[in-house]
Computed example of a mutant assay.
Amino acid sequence: MAQRIAGGLRGRGLPGRLIAFAALLATGLSAAAADVLAIVPDVSEPYRAVLYQIVDGMRRSASVRLVQIPSGADPGQPALTVEGERVVIALGGTAAQAADALRTRLPVVAGAVVAPTGMPPLPGVSLETDPEALFKHLTALLPTIRTVHWLYRPERSGWMLDRAQAAARHSRLKLVVVAVDNARSAAQRYQEILDRADSQTDAVWLSQDPALIGADSTLPDILGRAWARNIVVFSGSVQHVSHGVLFALYPDNTAMGENLARLALAHAGGAPFTFEPNRELQSAINRRTAEHLGIAPELARYDLVLPAR
């Protein structure tokens, strides 16, 4: 780039000193440090696409130097270097482990993970949907709902418990929380809840935890029972909507990356930042389930309507 600029100036007959200054300026611009060092693991699809959509969003808020590491890499290998960046954003658990060695040099922020990671836990943005957004959408769509049932595994989702309870109070909902450890106990509790739920006032917030919800086992039973008794089931997973869940709010990966970079840079400047649920969301609704429940949502307001006609 420096040669092209200097050559162009030389062709205009400008003094050599000015040409030399232009070349130096161009070299400085090309060598300028990025704002963010982004670390991503080398993973297969579809997770790879998610990570790079997040990185594309980060580039809307900041200049980014991207480093890819092997998915199963030893946390200390390969050695990561800092080239003048202001903050590190590690996408995924493997990347967060690899970035641990940089925590004495730069602030490190986590993304594309579900639960807090690192010791002490890194600030960042979860892939889990913000409960407040879910409850707000639920009550706007179904004002008669008064009680939400949520099964969760403390190991994965315990960090969201206080947020979920506060969000429920804000939406004037009663949140009935049940801690479970595995898919078998979850299936039994979902059965109990759906057998006694009131279709006018109760709804089920379906966990995104694959250890609790099996797409080939637990999920069909839940949705079959909910369909038979007209119980509203909602989620943070767009895949659940394709199976028959009424609606989901799920990550807008690009917008999430843009927000993550903005928060990370503010954190590098001294702003407080904790681990937060994702608030950059898209919406999906199952048209067939809505019709079965007698709901007439404004379909144009949703990013995705399933099943597609």
Rank of each mutant, 00 (worst) to 15 (best):
M256H: 03
Y52V: 03
G257C: 03
I213Y: 01
A133R: 15
L212E: 04
Q282F: 06
N278V: 02
V180A: 12
D216Q: 13
R59T: 08
Q282S: 14
I295V: 13
R10H: 11
S63K: 02
E280A: 15
R189Y: 12
V180C: 09
L29I: 13
A290C: 10
F135A: 04
R184D: 11
P272M: 10
G269Q: 09
A96G: 01
D195L: 14
P116S: 11
Q188M: 14
T104H: 14
A290W: 01
L299P: 05
S217W: 08
Q165K: 15
V40S: 02
E298L: 09
L9A: 14
V87W: 00
V241P: 01
L51M: 07
F234G: 01
P46N: 06
P15E: 07
R229D: 10
A296D: 13
I69S: 01
I295T: 13
R4G: 06
S126I: 01
V113F: 03
L281F: 03
L299N: 11
E280C: 11
I89F: 02
P46A: 08
L141G: 13
P41S: 12
D162C: 08
E155S: 15
A95M: 06
A96F: 01
V176M: 10
D195I: 06
G76V: 10
V233M: 04
P107I: 03
D303A: 11
G236V: 06
A22M: 10
L206H: 07
I213P: 00
M119I: 11
I193F: 08
D216A: 13
P120T: 12
T274N: 09
I5K: 02
E258D: 09
Q188P: 06
Y152I: 08
R105G: 06
D100Q: 12
I193E: 03
E155M: 07
L138W: 02
A179Y: 07
K136F: 07
Q165V: 13
A300M: 09
T254E: 14
Q239T: 15
D209E: 11
G11D: 15
G57Q: 00
R163Y: 10
F273A: 04
G57H: 00
A31F: 06
R196T: 14
W205A: 05
S199Q: 13
S199M: 13
A38G: 05
V87Q: 02
G84E: 09
V88N: 00
I231M: 02
N230E: 14
E83W: 07
A261K: 01
E132Q: 13
G13Q: 10
L91E: 03
R60S: 11
E132P: 03
A110H: 00
L142G: 05
S30T: 14
E192M: 09
D202K: 08
I19C: 09
W150A: 04
M119C: 06
P121W: 13
L263M: 15
G16R: 09
L304S: 05
